[in-house]
Design a protein around this nucleic acid. Sequence first.
DNA 1: TATAAAACAACACGTTGCGTGTGGTTCAAT
DNA 2: ATTGAACCACACGCAACGTGTTGTTTTATA
Lengths: 247, 247
Amino acid sequence: MYTIGKLSKNTGVTVRTLDYYDEIGLIKPSSKTSGGHRLYSEDDVMRLERVLALKYMGFSLEQIKDILENSTSNWLESIQQQLELVKREQERLKMLEQALLGVSYSIEFEGEINWPIIFSMIKLYQQDPGDVLEKYKEYLNEDEMKKIVDMSVENMSEEDIQAWLRVVGDIRNNLHLDPNSEKAEQLVLSWADQADKMFGNDEELLGNMWEALQNLQEGIAFYPMNKDVIDFIKCVALAKGGQTHDS
Amino acid sequence: MYTIGKLSKNTGVTVRTLDYYDEIGLIKPSSKTSGGHRLYSEDDVMRLERVLALKYMGFSLEQIKDILENSTSNWLESIQQQLELVKREQERLKMLEQALLGVSYSIEFEGEINWPIIFSMIKLYQQDPGDVLEKYKEYLNEDEMKKIVDMSVENMSEEDIQAWLRVVGDIRNNLHLDPNSEKAEQLVLSWADQADKMFGNDEELLGNMWEALQNLQEGIAFYPMNKDVIDFIKCVALAKGGQTHDS
DNA sequence: TATAAAACAACACGTTGCGTGTGGTTCAAT
DNA sequence: ATTGAACCACACGCAACGTGTTGTTTTATA
């Protein structure tokens, strides 16, 4: 027989919690002293342990009461419902993590809060990515849209993301460079390399994407490229001679 | 200028929620009619959108108020704290999923609730797995313990889990068979194959594990093997002749 | 055995982010 | 001018306790 304090110490559950479980009829002490102090038996301890196990599994106290009371209740079903719930929650968190990562990248790059980009990020991972890429429909066909969606942060390797952020970031930090300079050319070449690597040899896609970027100049696809970067790349390409291999 | 109802319809946020946001000073309408009806400006709508974005990212309304009010607040830090939080929560859910899976398997196999097994499952994924395998310390050395922990459900392939559950389950469902029968021998052979596959060719580990199982007869490691299964395997092995290749 | 200290019971209020009313007021359309 | 819809303000409720407060019982010490 344990007093509520001893039980609390043994199980790590606070007295208030045991108080509450008594109050809602989840764990009622099987006896009391003449003075009214609660005494918990070994059976009560067992019940508490079961309650804690079920709580860990994510059931509500109401559900736990139901499960422990109704021996007719279908355990397997309850567990598997929880499993489904946990899986869905994991999916949600994965999306959330990607969105947060995206926002984090965006803040690092912009140096300030770019709300439209943040909204796009969230939408992108929240529901229909097609919605976010709406604006590109004019320039890209179905297949190309799909390809880009599949290629979004979600499915790119961490290295590719880093590399892409780096090459674009390098350009953004050096927009003041003379388009004729050696350095500028090198930056653009690095960028072209990475673009090639990521978009493969699909010249048509690259072309359409380039056109879309030139006209829309900002957006979630190909983030963090923006108008300035595009203009810079164009300038450098032009400076290098009429023959541009980018557009 | 939107009335609260229009704003609600446009954004999908309930009137009560906007009510609440007004109440806690998160989004105060920038003007009111002479009669006291709230009127929301475009700026208010923008603020609402930001609030929703931050809410999606998992911040509390209190934090959101802070973030939006104090432009001095460190965005990057906030976001990355959230990221950490989300990652930790994902870890927790992974563990929880494994525990639930384990419990699910256990119910399917026992046909009833085996609380000790459930407790073991939870402990196994909750903290120190060494604790759960305490009893085996007598029979297995450090390296072997580590090997088994690494091999627990968490890191086994889904196929191996299924196969293991199947071969052991097959035996549990056929404990009534004559140990001399063809079927019995086949069952035990299948079991031995899978055991070999999973524990490699580490004969010593297999031997010690077998000894531990014989003496402890129940537990979380090698679940769902139990006393009955072990006895059956021993019987069949003996029936086949003095030469057992299992022990 | 008397008394002080510790533990306990019972009650109440606070927390988060709203849902769900209720009664009275204001707006928009007829 | 009237009526129905929209609106405001207020209040209670939820889950699972945390954090007191006051008064009683138990336990330890003198």
